[in-house]
């Protein structure tokens, strides 16, 4: 298991390098001078502009610039935000926990809905429950997150007035009050993201369980006299989860995309809304860094999926 984990880690590195290369090439191919914000300022005389160009090495060959950029990123030197006037890494570190909290709880919610519903639907295929679940799933993943977000705001904040529609990082309360307020403001964003993911996961779980449930070893388990709950949980679900883990990992880019939208709707101070603000403010260092952080998060989640894989099916880690 340990050896397997290390091997997956080693495989993850080239994809991170590939992503960083794509990012850098995109930036280099872009017309204009994205880092020239300071250099093209008319208050700065031409000599200083030249000195700045030399200092940042803008006229060097692209490969040298890439290596230098990569080394700087690895050293934690992520640049300086033009708009906020603080270091990019500080800015991002302030925001990442919020995003991880929202994304993490929405994934837990999604799996908590999708697993039971999908398994139950697959146990009775084409029953009324299955058909209702299937239709709901279709509606669920056809509803874009930005629309469900607005709908929830309209119903629960505007009409009923139950929930706040602006997410605040600085709640002026202590103790239980603080937890209650944080919980209340997290309900809508987590529900929007979680229900959207739950819809597609339900379909994955259902078809994965359907593939497994008719295999001979399940019949064997039943004929040994195990009760149905044990057969389903210990024998069927564990094996059905293997493809589901893959599909969930493949969904991670979409999940973080959804997080950007939800953060924007509910004004959550996470890295998604930071990205949008940075784009609107032409704040290139922040944009690059946030995109790279998103890429890293996706790779990390894929890595976790690989490790869960090895735990679910021990044969994989021995290969």
């Amino acid at each position: 298991m340990g050896k397997y984990t290390v091997r997956r880690l080693v495989i993850a590195l080239p994809s991170l390098l590939g992503i960083s290369l794509i990012l850098f090439v995109l930036l280099a191919l872009a017309p204009g001078d994205p880092f020239g914000e300071l250099a093209t300022n008319s208050n700065i005389p031409p000599e200083i502009r030249e000195a700045l160009r030399v200092k940042f090495g803008i006229d060097d060959p692209i490969l040298i610039r890439y290596v230098r950029w990569l080394i700087a990123m690895l050293h934690g030197d992520w640049g300086f935000s033009f708009a906020s006037r603080i270091n990019v890494d500080q800015l991002i570190l302030q925001r990442v926990p919020t995003t991880l909290f929202v994304v993490g709880s929405s994934q837990i919610l999604a799996l908590a809905i999708a697993l039971p519903v999908g398994v139950y639907a697959a146990m009775r295929p084409y029953s009324i429950f299955d058909q209702i679940a299937n239709t709901m799933a279709f509606i669920g993943f056809s509803l874009p997150t930005f629309f469900t977000g607005l709908l929830l705001i309209l119903i629960f904040s505007v009409n009923l007035g139950w929930l706040p529609f602006v997410y605040r990082a600085d709640i002026a309360a202590t103790g239980w009050q603080w937890y209650w307020e944080s919980f209340k403001q997290a309900i809508m964003p987590v529900a929007v993201l979680g229900l959207f993911q739950a819809a597609s996961y339900t379909r994955y779980v259902r078809s994965a369980v359907l593939d497994v449930i008719r295999l001979d070893y399940v019949t064997t388990a039943r004929s040994k006299g195990l009760n149905e709950a044990k057969v389903i949980i210990k024998h069927v679900v564990r094996n059905a989860l293997i493809p589901v883990v893959t599909l969930v990992a493949l969904q991670m880019p979409a999940v973080f995309g959804g997080a950007i939208v939800t953060e924007q709707i509910f004004r959550i101070p996470g890295i998604g809304s930071l990205l949008i603000t940075a784009i609107l403010a032409n704040d290139t260092p922040v944009i690059m860094a946030v995109t790279f952080v998103f890429a890293c998060l996706v790779v990390v989640f894929n890595l976790m999926a690989d490790i869960i894989y090895g735990w679910l099916d021990p044969r994989i880690s021995y290969r």
Binding site: P253, I279, A295
Partner: peptide
């Protein structure tokens, strides 16, 4: 590699970089 890319952030990045051009 493309499957592992975070698509929406990159979409935004590309549009930000190439829109004016």
């Amino acid at each position: 590699l493309f499957l592992a890319l975070p698509q929406l952030p990159l979409l935004l990045l590309v549009i930000y970089l190439f829109r004016d051009f």
